[in-house]
């Protein structure tokens, strides 16, 4: 049975609407050497996420770092590693459906839009904005989930977290007199 793009989006959105639905992510992905190969994302998927990350978090301003520079795609790759294979497949199918949708709406896939000097990240941002306020709940849900994934990676980067405010003033590694304490012990 051929699967329609709408069905695909429905499944992918369902799998990806979960803001906390993230697989195992080593929490210093931003520091990985560039030559460490990604486990799951293909080159075109990396380009998709780089375009998206750059559209949400462009270079300049505070912090100066951009989404691409924060190595958001390495985080997403680690997210995929934590998913069950079927979930991973659905998730990736969703990405491909979105890229195809971008082509339909803006005449180019997201990475090509981003690379086009006449259009650039602002054109990607416009496509993404359209998805985020779409009347199609599944499309909206999927776009929102990708926004959270990208945000999750970017906001945890050491250059970015101070801009938001210290997140972990207490907690990890702190003793409160309980019989077992300290994150290292686990």
């Amino acid at each position: 049975m051929p699967i329609t793009r709408r069905q695909l989006l429905a499944v992918a959105a369902a799998l990806a609407t979960v803001p906390v639905g993230l697989g195992g992510v080593g929490w210093s992905w931003w520091g990985q050497a560039a030559d460490v190969p990604l486990r799951h994302l293909s080159a075109s998927e990396v380009a998709f996420f780089d375009a998206l990350a750059e559209a949400i978090f462009p270079p300049g301003g505070t912090p100066a770092l951009s989404g691409r520079e924060a190595h958001v795609c390495r985080y997403i790759d680690a997210v995929l590693a934590g998913m069950a294979e079927t979930q991973r497949d659905f998730f990736r199918l969703g990405l491909h459906a979105l890229d195809a949708l971008a082509w339909e709406q803006a005449g180019a896939a997201l990475p090509d839009l981003a690379a086009d000097p006449a259009r650039g990240p602002e054109a990607v941002a416009e496509v993404l904005r359209g998805w985020l306020v779409s009347t199609d709940g599944n499309l909206r849900g999927l776009a929102q989930s990708l926004h959270i994934f990208v945000g999750m990676a970017f906001l945890a980067h050491p250059d970015v977290s101070p801009v938001i405010a210290d997140q972990f003033g207490c907690g990890f590694g702190l003793s409160t007199g309980s019989t077992f304490v300290g994150h290292d012990a686990w």
């Binding site: 301003g61 505070t62 959270i148 970017f154 938001i164």
Partner: peptide
């Protein structure tokens, strides 16, 4: 966590960064 809140604001581009603080 802040990123979950950020996604609800449906922002893109520099306005996203301006919202962070």
């Amino acid at each position: 966590p802040p990123e979950a809140i950020l996604s609800m604001l449906t922002l893109t581009g520099q306005p996203t960064k301006e919202a962070l603080p």
